[in-house]
């Protein structure tokens, strides 16, 4: 009896494992809905396979999204750049016009891990994994990306600012997956930038990160500014007041100092091995200022171009 019992528990511990590679969003949604929490979507696997190996995730069924054309494609039209959620960072980087439009977002993509990791890592996976330190997320936030989600009820859009709800959690419901990120082309005289601080220059996780997007007026004043901070809260977030402080003013050193102070205030970091609370706050202010400077210089350049 005991032995049978043990055998049964053993079987329940390791349910039959499966791998599915659907070629349409509808099939993927059907698979995810049918298996419920036992299924896990797979994009590049650079988070998922590490978690699998560490025993943090034990999905019965892995649903590979990379064979779905919509999830691997990137389409740029007159208004919007639509990035398939599973497109690898390396594949995204190959098209120079995306960098010309969104240098900050592409910088964030290039900072993910190594060449090997970028060969697989997708922006969609980076967002869905919902790490507070995920590099592309602040850049998505300042660019007002919209997340296209497919599920049993059809499609819906959620602003990137609302997508991550806490470390490792998102708004995705049962059977839902992220299909693509939509980002409007930058307005005239506007540009983005992304910076992160890590002890090592490569292969490290952000202690703090900052993304900025600014729009300059014809008179050189700042029409609009958005600042996002990463790794200093449960999710990356827009530091509203810091951005607002630049709106309508001339972006001189004094104005940037005020923004840095507001960024330090907005930061709500934790103490861990990568940095203390005080240190992270300080660095948040420094990075906010620097990211804004880079974005301002780029926007000015575009004014001349």
């Amino acid at each position: 009896m005991r032995r049978v019992g043990r055998l049964l528990t053993g079987l329940m511990d390791s349910p039959a494992r499966g791998y599915e590679a659907p070629d349409s969003v509808e099939q993927a949604v059907a698979l995810l809905s049918a298996h419920g929490p036992a299924a896990r979507p797979l994009a590049g696997g650079s988070d998922l396979l590490v978690q699998l190996r560490a025993g943090l995730q034990k999905p019965a069924v892995i649903v590979d999204l990379k064979r779905i054309p919509e999830l691997s494609a990137v389409v740029l039209d007159d208004e919007v750049l639509r990035i398939g959620a599973a497109r690898s960072s390396a594949a995204l980087r190959e098209e120079p016009s995306y960098r010309a439009l969104f240098p900050g977002l592409l910088e964030a993509c290039e900072l993910i891990g190594s060449e090997q990791i970028q060969g697989r890592a997708s922006i969609g996976g980076n967002l869905c994994n919902a790490s507070p330190a995920a590099d592309t997320v602040p850049a998505l936030l300042v660019n007002e990306a919209r997340c296209e989600i497919a599920g049993p009820e059809g499609r819906r859009f959620v602003p990137a600012t609302e997508f991550c709800t806490g470390p490792g959690s998102t708004v995705l419901g049962l059977g839902e997956l992220l299909v693509a990120l939509h980002i409007s082309r930058p307005a005239a005289r506007s540009a983005d930038a992304f910076l992160r601080f890590t002890p090592r220059s490569e292969m490290d996780i952000a202690v703090v990160s900052a993304a900025a997007r600014v729009q300059l007026g014809e008179d050189g004043r700042c029409l609009d500014a958005r600042l996002a901070l990463g790794a200093v809260g449960p999710t990356a977030f827009i530091a509203e007041q810091a951005g607002d402080a630049l709106r309508g003013v001339s972006p001189d050193d004094a104005a940037l100092e005020r923004v840095a102070a507001l960024a330090r205030e907005a930061a709500a970091p934790i103490d861990d091995k990568r940095g203390s609370i005080a240190y992270r706050r300080q660095v948040a202010g420094v990075l906010a200022k620097r990211a804004l400077r880079v974005a301002l210089a780029r926007a000015a350049e575009r004014t001349r171009g």
Binding site: Y19, A21, L42, G44, G45, S46, L49, V50, I62, D64, K66, S88, A90, A91, E115, Q116, I117, G119, R120
Partner: peptide
């Protein structure tokens, strides 16, 4: 564990064989 997958550099430890 670096290998090329369709010409792209990847870690074979982070790719499923089924993929």
């Amino acid at each position: 564990c670096s290998v090329l997958l369709d010409g792209r550099l990847v870690c074979a430890c982070l790719v499923l064989a089924a993929e």
